[in-house]
Amino acid sequence: MKLYSYFRSSAAYRVRIALNLKELEHDIVPVNLLKSEQQGDDYLQKNVQGLLPALETEEGVLGQSLAILEWLDETTDHAPLISGNAWQKAQIRNLAYAIAVDIHPLNNLRVLKYLTNELQVTEEQKTTWYQDWITTGFDKVEKMLGDGPFCFGDTPTLADVCLIPQVYNALRFKTPMENYPKIMAIYTHCNTLKAFSDAAPEQQIDAQ
């Protein structure tokens, strides 16, 4: 498999974690978002959406991180990301979607570029926008968490795979995190695992 990735892409970060957890062999193919390489003809032939990540498999190419993560879970037995009874699976998805659907899209690079280039907001205003949507989301996520080492139970799930990249970016944008002790405890614990630490942006071959 080939994962088309950018080191700071939160969505690609999720897939890197999952591939590592499942111990699946794969190659990383860097695509530079800052240089708009995702809009190049070669990449668009693989992923018509022109977004990252994309996972190239023997069956074809998938280009949405949540679809990739669920496909990986359905096609492999090792390190399941969504497990338990129907209610428990729904709870895992509920938290994962609260992050990947409600928080992340408002703060991805396309939105930040639009704020800067089209609306001509200042760097300070852009940071305020970013931090506001993070805290709005994390205020709710913190209340959804228990006291375990992971979001649910004693093993990483889809929720952890989505949470850790979002926390990484929150810290990158200097979002105050003192109100989120459960989130930070999970973030710290997950990063003691090699699957998470190896997927971190600074460990990638295209890290700048």
Results as ranks from 00 to 15, higher is better:
residue 94 N to M: 15
residue 102 D to M: 09
residue 73 D to A: 09
residue 99 I to S: 06
residue 92 I to V: 15
residue 70 E to I: 08
residue 108 N to I: 07
residue 81 L to I: 07
residue 89 K to F: 07
residue 104 H to P: 01
residue 80 P to C: 09
residue 117 N to G: 09
residue 108 N to D: 01
residue 93 R to I: 10
residue 105 P to A: 02
residue 120 Q to T: 02
residue 100 A to V: 13
residue 101 V to T: 10
residue 103 I to Q: 00
residue 68 I to R: 05
residue 103 I to L: 01
residue 57 T to E: 05
residue 114 Y to L: 11
residue 118 E to T: 01
residue 116 T to Q: 15
residue 107 N to S: 05
residue 117 N to C: 05
residue 65 S to P: 10
residue 119 L to E: 15
residue 72 L to I: 00
residue 87 W to Q: 14
residue 100 A to L: 09
residue 57 T to N: 12
residue 62 L to Y: 09
residue 113 K to I: 01
residue 102 D to W: 09
residue 111 V to G: 06
residue 95 L to D: 02
residue 73 D to Q: 11
residue 100 A to P: 08
residue 88 Q to E: 15
residue 71 W to I: 06
residue 100 A to I: 11
residue 86 A to H: 11
residue 61 V to N: 00
residue 61 V to H: 05
residue 89 K to R: 15
residue 99 I to C: 03
residue 122 T to F: 10
residue 103 I to M: 02
residue 114 Y to N: 11
residue 67 A to S: 13
residue 112 L to G: 07
residue 82 I to C: 02
residue 67 A to Y: 08
residue 98 A to R: 13
residue 109 L to A: 05
residue 79 A to V: 10
residue 92 I to H: 03
residue 66 L to I: 14
residue 72 L to F: 03
residue 110 R to T: 08
residue 106 L to A: 02
residue 59 E to F: 12
residue 107 N to L: 06
residue 81 L to W: 10
residue 73 D to T: 13
residue 74 E to D: 09
residue 120 Q to S: 14
residue 62 L to T: 07
residue 60 G to A: 00
residue 121 V to E: 12
residue 79 A to F: 14
residue 105 P to C: 02
residue 98 A to F: 06
residue 58 E to L: 13
residue 98 A to I: 06
residue 118 E to Q: 14
residue 106 L to H: 10
residue 117 N to S: 14
residue 72 L to D: 03
residue 75 T to F: 04
residue 121 V to P: 05
residue 120 Q to L: 11
residue 107 N to K: 05
residue 107 N to D: 01
residue 85 N to L: 06
residue 115 L to G: 04
residue 91 Q to K: 15
residue 98 A to E: 05
residue 95 L to P: 00
residue 98 A to G: 14
residue 72 L to K: 10
residue 113 K to Y: 12
residue 66 L to H: 08
residue 88 Q to N: 00
residue 71 W to P: 02
residue 94 N to P: 03
residue 76 T to Y: 03
residue 87 W to H: 10
residue 121 V to G: 07
residue 92 I to N: 05
residue 83 S to Q: 05
residue 99 I to W: 02
residue 85 N to G: 01
residue 87 W to G: 04
residue 109 L to W: 06
residue 101 V to D: 02
residue 65 S to F: 12
residue 69 L to P: 05
residue 99 I to Y: 00
residue 100 A to E: 13
residue 86 A to L: 14
residue 57 T to F: 06
residue 101 V to N: 14
residue 99 I to T: 03
residue 58 E to D: 15
residue 113 K to D: 14
residue 73 D to L: 13
residue 86 A to F: 09
residue 65 S to A: 10
residue 112 L to R: 13
residue 102 D to C: 06
residue 79 A to N: 13
residue 94 N to Y: 15
residue 95 L to S: 07
residue 82 I to M: 04
residue 99 I to H: 01
residue 65 S to K: 11
residue 89 K to V: 08
residue 79 A to G: 04
residue 64 Q to L: 06
residue 113 K to Q: 15
